[in-house]
Amino acid sequence: MLTKRDYAAVAFLTIITVFLMFSMLLIHPFGSPNASAMDQYIIDNTVEETGANNGVTSVVFDYRGFDTLGEATVLFTAVAGVIMIFRRLKK
């Protein structure tokens, strides 16, 4: 028995699918993204500037360290939140 809510959900899902399909066809071709100056600079200078052979690590901890700081904060907040939720339950 399909309710009105089910029809609305199917319609919503269809709209999202069509939208994603059009985005898929209109985005830049697979395998040839628009190279910005930043990307080429990082590839050219990582080894000399950071001394690391791993480009991803040099981006995570050096060029974009602030991102990693925020990420560490998110992880810390998650652990704090889990501890807080289960502290209350123990009583």
Partner: peptide, 20 residues
């Protein structure tokens, strides 16, 4: 023996992720 501060940060973040 390369990488500057990156190995130190890797150790710190590794400890943090293990414990977290």
């Amino acid at each position: 023996n390369t990488g500057g501060t990156l190995p130190l940060m890797n150790f710190a973040v590794g400890l943090k992720v293990i414990a977290g």
